[in-house]
Nucleic acid binder design. Structure first.
Lengths: 229, 229
DNA sequence: TCGAAGGCGTTAGCAACGCTTTCTTAGCTG
DNA sequence: CAGCTAAGAAAGCGTTGCTAACGCCTTCGA
């Protein structure tokens, strides 16, 4: 048999799979872990302490998950993949996720900080690839906030949450705005690229193909600044 | 003296100004409302029933707030204003907001539905103005989810929440993506405008000022499609 | 004017909760 | 073997949400 502490943690995690943290009684935990009531308080001082420890373990699983995300040669696509795996984790472990991201007074700035660090390093890769048009810090906060926000919302209103569509929509909006990658509307940035090349040609300050005008004209076709559908 | 029901509701709202709903005991409510314990259960059946009633009142204030938002002739700007007033309400009434948007089993799809309806009508105005490039339904869900999500996140991690910057960032990203309005980077759309005029000039198919090239060159200055800041 | 009805206050108490105290036992270490 | 710490057993504390039983007093129709 394992140690008492491990049994308590395991029992709590198991109960957390079906009930909210607040609906779990310390007695139920003790029954399932086959320990006496005082054991919880000897080990964790507090019910909140126990929940914090469980949240910590959850964060470790969460971060391990995130670290497993492959690094492709498209850092922006990696951002989107990370977003999706985050959402999947939340939907798979609703009560645990709520426990992790809805602290009572204050609990784990450490683990959240680590998640932030992971995100920032992913963003740094975007920056290195010249695909970030927002201050790194703000970009990270925006993505993290939106990501957690979408998850909490999905857990609170599952019937209002329309499957992954809405997560994808917010994801592409935020990541797109931060990186400058327009997902569904790359024509705009293409337009800029071509316009820059064109100006370079016309002013004689940059090398550009002679067909710049034709390509620009074609690229701009139908892409107004405020498209009227 | 007012009726018992009103006093109970008022007392709960007052306590909710300083404590979380779960930290409020029914006895404290009764003390403050000068009623006996059974009164709560005669009136609301349940503590949850009382909290639901309070949440209802909160939604009414919330919706009244939203309805007070002026309708300017720029429906997209109105969307942004509504977003900001939503966030302000959440920050002003943290515990009430949490109560409203973190239901236990399920509570007010009615009030949330009304908020959604308000949002959809605002989006309909955008659509009428030709400033919506996303299905109405999905646009509404995306904005509402992101908005509530940012608020819940801000309440859970106030120290991590960097003032209104991040709300603005997510707001402009989501609303921008949904409407096609680029907020902070209007240079891009300006670039498109000028580029179109330029192409018109060069191909002789549109009237444009002779300084088009100069203006385009200036407008594009420093605005790369993948700016390396 | 009377009497039924219902809104409201009072007292007392239940079961469940988080948490504590006390005592005892088991197992390892020096 | 002595001494330490980890951990199981039992009992109980105070608070919580909630209920039962009773009685007052206003309202209102007959």
């Amino acid at each position: 048999m394992s140690t008492a502490r491990e049994r308590i943690l395991a029992a709590t995690e198991e109960l957390l799979a079906s009930k909210d943290a607040l609906a779990i009684s310390t007695r139920a935990i003790c029954d399932r872990a086959k320990v006496g009531m005082p054991e919880i308080y000897r080990q964790f001082g507090d019910k909140q302490g126990l929940l914090t420890a469980v949240a910590c373990i959850g964060f470790e699983r969460f971060l391990a998950n995130k670290r497993r995300n492959p690094m492709t040669d498209d850092p922006v696509a990696d951002l989107r993949t990370a977003w999706d795996s985050h959402v999947a984790f939340a939907l798979d472990n609703p009560h645990l996720y709520r426990l992790m991201f809805t602290p009572a007074p204050e609990s784990q700035p450490r683990a959240v900080g680590e998640a932030r660090a992971l995100l920032l390093s992913a963003l740094e890769r975007c920056r290195a690839a010249g695909r970030l048009r927002t201050p790194l810090e703000l970009a990270g906060q925006s993505i993290l906030t939106a990501n957690v926000g979408v998850c909490l919302m999905a857990l609170s209103f599952p019937e209002l949450y329309g499957a992954p569509e809405i997560s994808r929509s917010v994801r592409d909006a935020v990541i797109g705005a931060v990186t400058g990658d327009e997902r569904e509307d790359t024509r705009i940035t293409d337009g800029i690229v071509l316009a820059q090349a064109l100006v370079g040609t016309l002013t004689g300050t940059a090398p550009a193909g002679g067909d710049a005008i034709a390509r620009l004209s074609q690229a701009l076709q139908g892409s107004g600044p405020r498209g009227d559908e």
